[in-house]
């Protein structure tokens, strides 16, 4: 079993962890977005609140959710440790930097990732924590469900405040940059780089990096513009 330890302490082992957890989180973002789009339904929050209930009570989803938390933490932890190690490996920096041949995002993944982590904490503190561990949210009842917490109202209240909307928009921009590099990078780390497929992976990655954060961003904007008035 020594080989497992050797592997995960090797550079490529650590990169593999980043790649696999990253890909999982990429998938998660899609599921999360589909759920969030329920917020755009004009049904007084029924679709969204029942969805939120299901997400917190279905045993299978709960397991996946715990996995998700774990992967976020792992991705962040390994990512930060790699960034710190690399800083040491680079040593002294150049007096003149010339980096017009590489993307800004690729060189600032750790910064972007840390910002995303901060965003996740704010985001979860705002909604998830308040739903799970406080009584601040009211209750609603829908047909076929026991009483559920009214997360919908919480969301619309939050997104009526400009500063929260701005925080979310910044968060999504940061996410977009992180994905801009991260998507294709995850495939490269897995060893999937081929003249035939890589251009496709790169295009999909870029589209993904724009569309998914945009999808998330639409919600606070929409709420702020149309629900607050």
């Amino acid at each position: 079993m020594k080989w497992i330890i050797t592997f995960f302490s090797s550079s490529i082992g650590k990169k593999l962890l980043m790649s696999l957890t990253g890909l999982f989180l990429i998938l998660f973002l899609v599921v999360h977005l589909i759920g969030n789009l329920q917020l755009l339904k004009d049904d007084g929050g029924e679709a969204f609140n029942t969805y939120a209930y299901m997400m917190t009570h279905n045993p299978l989803i709960k397991i996946v959710a715990y996995g998700n938390y774990f992967f976020i933490i792992l991705h962040a932890f390994v990512g930060i440790s790699i960034a710190l190690y690399n800083k040491g490996a680079k040593g002294q920096k150049y007096a003149v930097s010339n980096s017009n041949k590489t993307t800004w995002a690729s060189k600032n993944m750790a910064l972007l990732g840390t910002l995303i982590l901060a965003f996740i904490l704010i985001h979860m503190g705002d909604f998830w924590f308040k739903m799970k561990f406080t009584d601040e949210l009211g209750m609603k009842s829908y047909e076929g469900f026991p009483e559920v917490r009214d997360l919908y109202t919480r969301v619309s209240t939050a997104f009526s405040q400009l500063w929260i909307v701005v925080v979310y928009l910044i968060g999504m921009m940061v996410l977009s940059f992180h994905l801009w590099h991260g998507f294709q990078s995850a495939f490269q780390t897995l060893g999937l780089n081929h003249k035939k497929y890589t251009p496709l992976i790169k295009s999909v990655g870029k589209a993904y990096a724009i569309l998914i954060p945009l999808g998330f961003a639409v919600i606070p904007i929409w709420y702020f513009l149309f629900k607050t008035m």
Binding site: I12, I82, T102, S106, M109, H181, S185, T189
Partner: peptide, 22 residues
Amino acid sequence: MVAQMDKEGFGMCSNIGACEAE
């Protein structure tokens, strides 16, 4: 080779592509 590369204290690739460019 990877083990030796790690042992020498080189950093870990994050697929930036500066190497290829230069």
